[in-house]
């Protein structure tokens, strides 16, 4: 029985409406993302790229932040960084009416370093603890009420706001353990924050490995750990690496957890300039997201600060993308080597 023509029309129209709803929703997402990337990209590239060789504003990337001094001199508008101003002052002794704007000269080099350190440390911690926990949950544990409780706890951890993590880290690592504002405190706080995602994704990757591989290995006389190490974990690694991509983006970009635990608004020494090697872990660092926050909200806004903000955001985006790209490339390489 062929449907009556009006019915056909109606279903066809419905189909088209639904299709276009989905399509428009996607385009909306695309539009938002494009706007953000374009905005940051255009404004940020003004700071990061220069019109003459080597086309990258190396000063921005390799110098620490300095105060900017803006003044008029002999009809010209001068914008000098702190050091430059002092040098200029040596040769020009007259008084000038300067407006000083913090953080708006120099660059963000220490922030880049600091974020990189924080990411590396916290991801290492999170991956180690996360994968171990995932192995336990997926390979060793039995379904008991305790286990179900653990799983609920992990799920809940994923929903904790990042500022709460920050406060927790502050209370436990900074105050109670006495680590003060330090890399260690930042690593642990950030690591804990990203742990649920790592655990869940790692567990999924482990479960995706077919049971036949485990049984086959055990039937050959392997112990459980041998089986996991040689026949399960290697094949779960692509999935785990994928999960770490999201983790890196989150760890690099969160401000709240590091605000009280690891980040300084301004620091003169670079992280490797420590007197004893153990001091390395107990020092605070500058970090990109926190720097953006400081420049955006702690000081009065003008065109100079805007330059720094967008420049920092742009660099930040590029950095995260590079890290993500590396992770994806690694995953592809692993995946091409084995498939089932």
């Amino acid at each position: 029985m062929i449907a009556a023509p009006s019915n056909r029309q109606r279903t066809r129209i419905l189909e088209r409406i639904v299709f276009w709803t989905f399509r428009l929703a996607t385009y909306l997402v695309l539009a938002c993302a494009t706007y953000i990337f374009l905005d940051i990209g255009i404004k940020g590239s003004r700071t990061v790229f220069t019109s003459h060789a080597p086309f990258i504003n190396l000063k921005f990337l390799t110098q620490p932040p300095q105060t900017l001094y803006v003044f008029d001199y002999e009809g010209k508008k001068m914008e000098l960084s702190d050091r430059e101003f002092r040098d200029w002052k040596l040769t020009h002794k007259e008084d000038v009416d300067v407006t000083s704007i913090s953080y708006s000269a120099g660059g963000i080099w220490p922030c880049i370093v600091g974020t990189a350190l924080l990411v590396i440390g916290s991801m290492t911690l999170a991956l180690f603890i996360g994968i171990s926990a995932a192995i336990y949950l997926s390979e060793y544990s039995r379904d008991t009420p305790l286990l179900r409780f653990i799983r609920i706890a992990i799920l809940n951890l994923a929903g904790v706001p990042s500022i709460v993590f920050g406060l927790f880290g502050f209370g436990l690592f900074v105050i109670f353990f006495g680590w003060n504002v330090s890399l260690l405190a930042g690593w642990f706080t950030l690591g804990l924050m990203v742990l649920p995602a790592i655990i869940t994704a790692s567990e999924e990757s482990l479960r995706a490995v077919p049971q036949g591989l485990r049984e086959g290995s055990l039937a050959l006389g392997a112990t459980k750990w041998q089986t996991i190490r040689k026949n399960v974990l290697p094949y779960a690694v692509p999935g785990i690496l994928t999960s770490s991509i999201l983790g890196i983006a989150r760890v690099a970009g969160e401000t709240a957890p590091i605000m009280f635990t690891a980040a300084y608004a301004m620091r003169d020494e670079m992280p490797w300039q420590v007197s004893r090697w153990t001091d390395f872990f107990f020092q605070g660092v500058m970090a990109l997201p926190y720097h953006i926050y400081v420049v955006s909200s702690k000081i009065p806004q003008n065109e100079y600060t805007e330059r720094v903000q967008y420049g920092a955001a742009f660099v930040f985006l590029v950095l995260v993308m590079l890290i993500a790209l590396t992770s994806i490339l690694l995953r592809e390489r692993q995946r091409s080597r084995l498939s089932w």
Binding site: G212, E215, G216, L220, Y235
Partner: peptide, 18 residues
């Protein structure tokens, strides 16, 4: 572990390792 080395098994669905 030793028992399983001396008593081998072949499964219904062949499971070669990747």
């Amino acid at each position: 572990v030793d028992l399983r080395r001396r008593v081998g098994m072949v499964f219904q669905k062949s499971n070669p390792f990747p």
